[in-house]
Design a protein around this nucleic acid. Structure first.
Length: 559
DNA sequence: ATCGTATGCGCCC
DNA sequence: TGGGCGCCCTACGA
């Protein structure tokens, strides 16, 4: 009854069409006339080769003026491979791959994303490839049978059916990391590519603060001091690690790897991975040359010498301390490995396990409760789960194909555990490839059950057309924070929620039109507080407007 | 060749 | 017009 009417209030909420080919026609009418090209599709190019070459210059009109006026076919070359006969790019809200390239999703040649088995089978780019790495089927079955029956004891994780989304627009460069306050529920920290750090109370804007001078470039990781949540540490590509007192705002630089300043790119050291080992009272950081550093939290000084933990000269992008066994450290980096270390025996080459990947490993995290599983995100478009139960970490216990490619303009994607899920099966990660959602190209945020490989929910908002590579689930509440381009989105369950869509046990959670009062609650409730931020550009925190228009992805076709 | 790295710029409000 | 925006690029060097 009520749910039904509610549902009708947002008519765009529909199950995404399977036949993407069909969507071309349906979207092309509302899309801009990119197909204005007078040349019919069926008509073959008169001189494809010769014309194609001219076309590359962009101003082929001048070049061909002395030739016979056969210039009409110039556009019909693929922008990726420059060959005629097909065109890569958006057709409406659907991206057509260049067939000459490997599949953009699974990276295998011979097909495109559209026909990729990893997309077709379960849809939307997710499939479990669980037995892929077992050497034979028997081993796979064996492994499956031995593995604890997690589903039986699994308390269902809670994924709301309907969410509201608030937006914080402050950062002038892309958001690179997010961190929830460990005890204060509404406090979120954000770091960006410029080195700015924002502290937000996303319920009321009266408590917000921006630190613009802690770091001079990318903030790669932030972490609260577990024994003193008034202090937050940040690692930056400026080569420093900072400790900021949340009360006073005073920031210390605990370490500077570039004391002599810029001496060229080959010597400039950057800090990426960072975590805190509270047992030992040290901050662990790692740089872009493969080294690990430790800073004593009491003396705020470097403790010991740098240790080579990954291939020399390669970037170490992630560090994580085991939540249960403080002597266990996990690292990952650009040498295609994630490595498990014993803190008591930390020296080059002494890793306990080396988890091999096919590409750069963007993140590696121990599971949040037991610490017995490892979730890695690799730039080969696969999530991997490594289960230490077998004591054999040669191969992952599961691989999940998922679109989270590297792109130079995007913060690397990192799959994150749900810290609230005691079954340790739920992970969240943004998706790179877009979904044609009623004519809009949207990039959902995926919730994946890593025990089955199933996509259990995908969150999106018709108004958010940007990619959300940075995602963090709240440690206690049903809140998801996403960093998407220069914006931060806060997703919260909508009260009195009803099921929006369900298909194959998967929820498509669409952030519908926010109720006005709700969006106010998030942003502008206390506009009076804006005065302390008046020196910053415009309105720093604003509520998400309830925009009814679903903006189609039309830019590409416009002239 | 492949792969990692770093940065820009066309489009559009 | 110009500045903000956002990326299925892409050139370069090892």
């Amino acid at each position: 009854m009520a749910p039904q009417t509610r549902r009708m209030a947002f008519p765009s909420v529909v199950v995404v069409e399977r036949e993407d080919a069909d969507s071309e026609q349906s979207t092309s009418d509302e899309d801009e006339p990119e197909e204005e090209d007078p040349l019919p599709e069926s008509e073959p190019e008169p001189e494809p080769e010769a014309e194609a070459e001219v076309a590359e210059n962009g101003n082929g009109d001048n070049k061909v003026k002395q030739k016979a006026p056969i210039t009409i076919s110039l556009k019909k070359v693929c922008k990726v491979c420059k060959k005629a006969g097909h065109e890569a790019g958006f057709k409406g809200a659907t991206y057509i791959d260049c067939p000459m390239k490997p599949c953009f999703l699974c990276k295998m040649p011979g097909h495109t994303t559209m026909s990729c088995p990893h997309r077709v089978t379960i849809e939307h780019g997710i499939i479990s490839a669980s037995h892929r790495n077992a050497s034979n089927a028997l081993e796979y079955v064996f492994e499956r049978q031995l593995r604890p029956r997690i589903p039986l004891i699994k308390p269902a994780y809670v994924i709301p059916d309907k969410v509201n989304c608030g937006v914080i627009k402050y950062h002038s460069r892309r958001v690179t990391c997010l961190e929830f306050h460990p005890t204060k529920n509404n406090i979120l920290l954000s770091g960006d590519k410029k080195g700015q750090v924002g502290v937000w109370d996303y319920y009321k804007t009266s408590e917000k603060m921006v630190y613009g001078n802690i770091h001079s470039c990318i903030v790669n990781n932030m972490r609260f001091n577990p024994t003193n949540d008034g202090a937050v540490y940040a690692a930056s590509s400026d080569g420093t690690i900072s400790c900021t007192d949340m009360e006073t705002g005073i920031s210390l630089s605990l370490m500077n790897l570039n004391p002599d300043g810029w001496q060229g790119p080959s010597s400039w050291r950057m800090l990426y991975g960072m975590d805190i080992n509270s047992e030992k009272g040290v901050v662990l950081v790692a740089d872009n040359f493969g080294f690990l550093y430790m800073v004593d939290m009491r003396s705020n000084s470097k403790s010991g010498e740098a240790i080579l933990i990954h291939k020399k000269g390669s970037k170490v992008v992630g560090l994580h301390c085991n939540p249960i066994q403080p002597e266990l450290l996990l690292s990952c980096g650009n040498d295609h490995f994630a490595r498990v270390w014993d803190m008591r025996r930390l020296e080059a080459g002494s890793s306990l396990f080396d988890l091999a990947h096919r590409r750069v490993v963007s993140s590696a995290y121990f599971s949040p409760v037991s610490g017995s599983k490892i979730l890695t995100t690799s730039q080969d478009n696969r999530l991997r789960i490594w289960d230490s139960i077998f004591g054999n970490m040669d191969t992952p216990s599961r691989e999940i194909v998922h679109s989270h490619d590297f792109n130079r303009h995007l913060t690397p994607f990192r799959a994150e555990w749900d810290p609230k899920d005691p079954s340790e099966t739920l992970a969240v990660i943004g998706r790179y490839i877009s979904e044609n959602f009623n004519g809009a190209a949207l990039h959902p945020i995926d919730f994946i059950d890593i025990s089955t490989g199933q996509l259990v929910a995908e969150v999106m908002d018709p108004n958010i057309t940007t990619i959300s590579p940075v995602n963090k689930l709240h440690p206690r509440e049903d809140v998801l924070a996403s960093g998407s381009s220069r914006s931060i989105f806060i997703w919260r369950p909508k009260e009195n929620s009803e099921l929006v869509e369900q298909k194959d046990e998967r929820k498509i959670i669409v952030c519908g039109r926010s109720e006005k009062k709700q969006s106010r609650k998030l942003g502008n409730e206390s506009d009076d507080s804006d005065d302390d931020m008046s020196n910053l550009k415009g309105k720093n925190v604003k509520s998400k407007k309830s925009v009814t228009k679903v903006t189609p992805y039309s830019r590409k076709g416009k002239r």
